[in-house]
Design a protein around this nucleic acid. Structure first.
Length: 926
DNA sequence: CTGCTAGCATA
DNA sequence: GTATGCTAGCAGA
C-alpha cells in the first residue's frame, strides 16, 4: 500500500454514479444522487484499495487532440443531463474534502492523464491501480498496473485482461481498433466484433500483421477489412491512450503532488450540511454537536471553475484539497473584543499564534501586535504599538500581554506557529515564557520535505495553493522599508491575521503527512520540536566574550597586515588591493608572469590557498599573500566582527541557530556564525581565548569522538570496523594496519595520515580522483588504496552500494532515526549533478544521524540541568560538540554527567564516546 | 542597493 | 569528495 498509486477515472465515475442512483433531492430541491453515489463509490474504493498516493482525474472542458484529428469524435454523444451538470461542482468539492487530489488538464482527456500518471508511477517503482468503467484503459495493464471495474469490482491484471478479452493488454489497442467504439463514434471494421478480432489477432499477432495479410482474409468481413485499411491507423491513434502528456513536473512527482490525505472532517461536515446529507452529518459529528453548531458552508469556489492563474504555470487548473474557506479577519481594538478572543483560545484545542515586531533580530524585537486563529478562516489581529499619524487608539501592550499571559504560559494550551522559536524570544523580551508549543509548521515542513523551502509564502502556495500577502508587499524592502509599527491597521490586519490563519491551515495540511508515519513522527515530535525549545534557551543564554582581548588581537593583526602589504607592493613593483583576487591575478599572471596552476569555475586563473602554496615554492610574493589572507580573514570575520555582535543589554553574543536550513538535519548558526570559529591554526585558536565564562563559572566542552565513522560502522554493520570501535582502538591506526598489512604498532605516522584521509573521504563519498588530489598521489595508487579498504571492510562497500540503490529507488535516504534526506537530483540525466547527488547520498545518513544524536543529547542535557535546578547553562553547539558555562560548584557533577548523557542518548551497535575538557576559555577547554 | 564570484572558516 | 555562513570585491542597477 505504501507504494501504490490509486487513480480514479472521475468522469466515468460521474456517469456511473448518476445513472446508478435514483433521483435524490435535498430540501432545496437540488439533485444530489450523483453526489451521493460518487461519495459512496470513492469511500468504498479507498477502503478496499488503501494507497499512499491517489488522484481523481476529470475531463476538462475544451477540445482535445482527438477532436482535431477526427471532428466526428464523440459527435454522437448526448449532452450531459442538466441534473448531472448541476452536481459537478459539488462533486469536486466533496472529492477534495475526502482527501483526493483532483486533476483536470485542459485539452487532455482523463484517460490520457491516467495513462501518463501510470507510466510515471511505474518509472518511480510504484504500483498503480486504475478504477474506471471504461474498458479502453485495459491497454495500460501490465505487471505494475491493474484495472478495477467500477461497477462489477472485477480486478484485471495481465491474466485478467487475457481472460476477459482473449488478448493480452499489449494487444488491447489493436483489438479495440478493429472493433471500434460506438460510444465515442470511432468506427472499426464493419461486422468485426470481439470474436473476429480475437481470431485475427491470434492468427496474425497484431493489427499491423492483420493489415499486411488483409488480402488473405476471405468473405464479407475480409472485404470490410480491406475497405477500412486506410482508416485503421487513424482509429488506432484515437483509441491509444497517451502516456506522455505534458503534465507539469509538479504532478509527475507523484510522491509529492498526489499524496492521499485523510478526509477533512471539517470540510465534510460543512459539505454534508450544505447539501443536506443528514445521516452522514450525524455519523460524522457524533451525537454531541449534531446540528448544534451552525456549520459554515464552504463558499462555493468549485473545483470545476477554471482557475484564473495556474499556480505552477502548467496546463493545470490547480486545485485544492479543501474548498475555499470564507475569510473573516477581525481587528481587535477593544477590551471586550480581546475578551471574546481570550474565551475562544481558552477552549480551543489548538490555536495558531503569530507575533509582529519591530525587528527580525530576535533579541531586539519589540512586540507590535499579535494574531490568533483557532478555526481556519477566522483570525484576529491585536495591534499594541502601531505608531503613525492618526493611528487609531489601541489596547496597550501591557494590558494585552497581561491578559494573554496565563494562556501564553500555560503548557496545556496547545499552540502552533511558524518558527515559534522567534516568537518565544519576542515574548521573552517582554518577560513572558511561551509554553505549550504543540506544533511548528516550519519544523513540520522540514521533517516532511527537508530539501524544499519552508517560508510561509512558499508553504501556502505548495500546500494550500494560496498566494499570501508577503512582508515586502506590506513594508517594502531595502532602504525604503518601513517598520511594521508604521503599517496602517487595516492593512496590518490583512497581513497578520492571514499569517495566523494560514499557519493553522498549513498545520492541518501537513500534519496528516507526518502523523501516520511512525518514523517521521518520531523525528518531528521527539527530536525537532523539543530541540527548538532547547535552542531558544541556548540562544538566549548567549556566550560571554572578551571584547578587549579581541580588540588587542585586531590591533596586532592590523600592524602585521600593514607590513605585509608594504612587502607585497615592493615585490609586485606597484600598490594593489591584496583583498582583490582579480587585481592579484593581474599582478601574478600578467605582470609577473607566474604559471597558472588551476582555474576558477568561471575561467579566471585561481589564486586560492592551494595555488599560493604551490607558487610559494618558487616565488616570494605568494608566501606573503598566504600570511596576509590568513590574517585578514581572522581580522575581518572574527576579531573585528565579534565585539560588534555583543548585545549591549546582556553583554553577550547571541547567535541564531537555524533549525530548518541544512538538508541533512544539522543546525546552522548565523549572526554571528559560532560554528566556524577557527581552531586549526595557532593564530586562529587565539580567538577562542576570547570566549570566556562569567565570574564563578568555567567553560566546559564535550565532543563526540569519531561520531560519523562510528555511525558508518553501525549502519554498515561491518565486522572489522565494529570491532575496532568496540575494542577502543585508534580507528585511523586500525585502518592503516588493514590497508598496509602491518600490525597497529608498526603503523607509521605517514600511513596513519593516509588512513585518516581515506576514512574522511569515505564519509564524503569520495572517488579515486578526489583521494589522489588530496594525498598528492597517482590516481591508480589512490584506487588501489580504496580497493584495499573495501576488501578489508566489505560491509562498508556493501553499504555504499545499498545506499546508492536506495537513493535512486526512493529519491531519499534515511538516518538511523528515520529522518528523510531527499536527493532531488539522484536520477538526473546530468552526469555531474547525479554523481554529486550520489556522494551526498553516501554522506547524508552519517551526517544526518550525527545531527539526530546531538539533538537528542541537547534535549537530554537541558532536561537534566532543569531537573536538577543547576546554574550551569548550555551556550553553544558545534555539530559534534556541546559547550557549557558551568558554575564552579557544579563542575565535578557536570563533568561526570555530561559525557554520560551524550554517550547514552541512543544504543547503537558501536559505543558512543564523548570527550570533555574544561578551561577559563573555549581554547583551554578544547 | 542587490546579486554574484572567489575565497575560506568550521564539522 | 559532504554540510554550512560570512567577507570583500565588483558589476550592474
Amino acid at each position: 500500500m505504501q507504494n501504490t498509486l490509486l487513480l480514479v477515472d472521475g468522469s466515468s465515475y460521474l456517469y456511473r454514479a448518476f445513472h446508478a442512483m435514483p433521483d435524490l433531492r435535498n430540501p432545496q430541491g437540488e439533485p444530489t444522487g450523483a453526489i451521493y453515489g460518487m461519495i459512496n463509490m470513492l469511500r468504498r474504493l479507498r477502503s478496499d484499495y488503501p494507497a499512499a498516493y491517489m488522484a481523481c482525474v476529470f475531463d476538462a472542458k475544451g477540445k482535445t487532440f482527438r477532436d482535431d484529428l477526427y471532428p466526428e469524435y464523440k459527435a454522437q454523444r448526448a449532452p450531459m443531463p442538466d441534473d448531472l451538470r448541476l452536481q459537478i461542482e459539488p462533486i469536486h468539492q466533496a472529492v477534495a474534502a475526502m482527501g483526493w487530489p483532483i486533476l483536470m488538464v485542459e485539452g487532455v482527456e482523463a484517460d490520457d492523464v491516467i495513462g501518463t500518471l501510470a507510466v510515471a508511477a511505474t518509472r518511480q517503482n510504484m504500483k498503480t491501480v486504475v478504477s474506471t468503467g471504461d474498458k479502453d484503459l485495459a491497454q495500460l495493464v501490465n505487471s505494475q498496473v491493474t484495472l478495477i471495474n467500477t461497477m462489477s469490482n472485477e480486478v484485471m491484471d495481465e491474466p485478467g485482461v487475457l481472460a476477459k478479452f482473449g488478448v493480452p493488454p499489449a494487444r488491447i489497442i489493436d483489438y479495440l481498433t478493429l472493433i471500434g467504439d460506438t460510444v465515442d463514434n470511432v468506427p472499426g471494421v464493419t461486422k468485426c466484433g470481439p470474436k473476429t478480432a480475437v481470431k485475427w489477432l491470434t492468427e496474425y499477432d497484431s493489427l499491423d500483421g492483420i493489415m499486411a495479410n488483409a488480402d488473405k482474409i476471405k468473405g464479407v468481413v475480409g472485404d470490410n477489412l480491406r475497405a477500412a485499411l486506410n482508416w485503421l491507423p487513424q482509429g488506432r491513434v484515437l483509441i491509444t491512450v497517451k502516456t506522455d502528456c505534458d503534465l507539469s513536473a509538479h504532478y509527475q512527482d507523484i510522491q509529492h503532488s498526489l499524496v492521499a490525505k485523510p478526509e477533512s472532517k471539517e470540510d465534510m461536515l460543512a459539505f454534508f450540511s450544505r447539501y443536506g446529507f443528514k445521516t452522514w452529518l450525524r455519523e460524522l459529528s457524533g451525537d454531541a454537536t449534531a446540528g448544534a453548531t451552525p456549520l459554515k458552508a464552504a463558499s462555493a469556489t468549485s473545483a470545476a471553475a477554471p482557475a484564473n492563474s495556474p499556480v505552477q504555470g502548467g496546463l493545470f487548473q490547480e486545485e485544492e484539497n479543501a474548498a475555499v474557506i470564507e475569510k473573516n479577519y477581525e481587528l481587535v481594538l477593544t477590551e471586550s473584543a480581546l475578551d471574546a478572543w481570550l474565551a475562544r483560545i481558552q477552549q480551543a484545542s489548538l490555536t495558531a499564534f503569530d507575533t509582529e515586531t519591530t525587528s527580525l533580530e530576535p533579541m531586539h524585537a519589540q512586540l507590535v501586535g499579535l494574531s490568533l486563529c483557532c478555526e481556519a478562516g477566522h483570525a484576529c489581529y491585536i495591534p499594541v504599538a502601531h505608531h503613525y499619524a492618526d493611528a487609531p487608539l489601541q489596547l496597550t501592550r501591557e494590558l494585552v500581554l497581561e491578559k494573554l499571559r496565563p494562556w501564553l504560559e500555560d503548557a496545556s494550551k496547545a499552540k502552533v506557529g511558524q518558527n515559534l522559536k522567534y516568537d518565544s524570544h519576542v515574548l521573552a523580551n517582554h518577560g513572558i515564557q511561551l509554553r505549550g508549543i504543540a506544533h511548528d509548521t516550519l519544523l513540520e515542513s522540514y521533517v516532511f520535505e527537508s530539501h524544499k523551502s519552508h517560508d510561509m509564502d512558499s508553504l501556502a502556495l505548495r500546500h494550500l495553493g494560496k498566494k499570501t500577502i508577503s512582508f515586502e508587499e506590506v513594508c517594502g524592502k531595502g532602504a525604503s522599508q518601513i517598520g511594521f509599527d508604521q503599517v496602517e491597521l487595516q492593512r496590518a490586519t490583512d497581513y497578520a491575521a492571514e499569517d495566523a490563519d494560514i499557519t493553522l491551515q498549513l498545520h492541518q495540511a501537513m500534519w496528516p503527512e507526518i502523523a501516520p508515519d511512525a518514523k517521521l513522527l518520531k523525528v518531528y515530535h521527539d527530536i525537532e520540536l523539543p530541540t527548538s525549545v532547547v535552542l531558544q534557551k541556548i540562544e538566549r543564554n548567549g556566550v560571554k566574550i572578551d571584547p578587549a582581548l579581541l580588540a588587542a588581537q585586531s590591533h596586532e593583526i592590523g600592524i602585521r597586515l600593514l607590513e605585509l602589504e608594504q612587502n607585497a607592493y615592493a615585490l609586485a613593483g606597484q600598490p594593489f588591493n591584496l583583498n582583490s583576487p582579480k587585481q592579484l591575478g593581474e599582478i601574478f599572471f600578467g605582470k609577473l608572469g607566474l604559471p597558472v596552476v588551476k582555474k576558477t569555475p568561471s575561467g579566471a586563473p585561481s589564486t586560492d590557498e592551494e595555488v599560493l602554496q604551490k607558487l610559494a615554492e618558487d616565488y616570494p610574493l605568494p608566501k606573503i599573500l598566504l600570511e596576509y589572507r590568513g590574517l585578514a580573514k581572522l581580522k575581518s570575520t572574527y576579531t573585528d566582527k565579534l565585539p560588534k555582535m555583543v548585545n549591549p543589554a546582556t553583554g553577550r553574543v547571541h547567535t541564531n541557530y537555524a533549525q530548518a536550513v541544512a538538508v541533512t538535519g544539522r543546525l546552522a548558526s548565523n549572526d554571528p556564525n559560532l560554528q566556524n570559529i577557527p581552531v586549526r591554526t595557532a593564530e586562529g585558536r587565539r580567538i577562542r581565548e576570547a570566549f570566556i565564562a562569567s565570574p564563578g563559572h568555567i567553560i566546559m566542552s564535550a565532543d563526540y569522538s569519531q561520531i560519523e565513522l562510528r555511525i558508518m560502522a553501525h549502519i554498515s554493520g561491518d565486522a572489522s570496523l565494529l570491532k575496532a570501535f568496540a575494542d577502543g582502538e585508534d580507528v585511523h591506526r586500525a585502518t592503516a594496519a588493514e590497508i598496509f598489512g602491518v600490525t597497529p604498532a608498526e603503523v607509521s605516522n605517514e600511513q596513519r595520515r593516509y588512513a585518516k584521509v581515506i576514512n574522511f573521504g569515505l564519509i564524503y563519498g569520495m572517488s579515486a580522483f578526489g583521494l589522489a588530489g588530496n594525498l598528492g598521489i597517482e590516481r591508480a595508487a589512490a584506487q588501489s588504496y580504496i580497493d584495499k579498504y573495501f576488501q578489508r571492510y566489505p560491509g562498508v562497500a556493501q553499504y555504499m552500494a545499498d545506499t546508492r540503490t536506495k537513493a535512486k529507488a526512493h529519491g531519499y535516504v534515511e538516518t538511523v532515526f528515520g529522518r528523510r534526506l531527499w536527493l532531488p537530483e539522484i536520477n538526473s540525466p546530468n552526469g555531474p549533478r547525479r554523481q554529486g547527488a550520489e556522494r551526498a547520498a553516501i554522506n547524508a545518513p552519517m551526517q544526518g544521524t550525527a545531527a539526530d544524536l546531538i539533538k537528542l543529547a541537547m534535549i537530554a542535557v537541558q532536561n537534566w540541568l532543569e531537573q536538577e535546578k543547576l546554574q550551569t547553562r548550555m551556550i553553544m553547539q558545534v555539530h559534534d560538540e556541546l559547550v557549557l558555562e558551568v558554575a564552579d560548584a557544579e563542575v565535578e557533577l557536570v563533568r561526570q554527567k555530561l559525557p554520560e548523557l551524550m554517550a547514552n542518548v541512543a544504543t547503537l551497535d558501536v559505543p558512543l564516546l564523548a570527550e570533555v575538557g574544561i578551561g577559563h576559555n573555549w581554547e583551554e577547554a578544547h
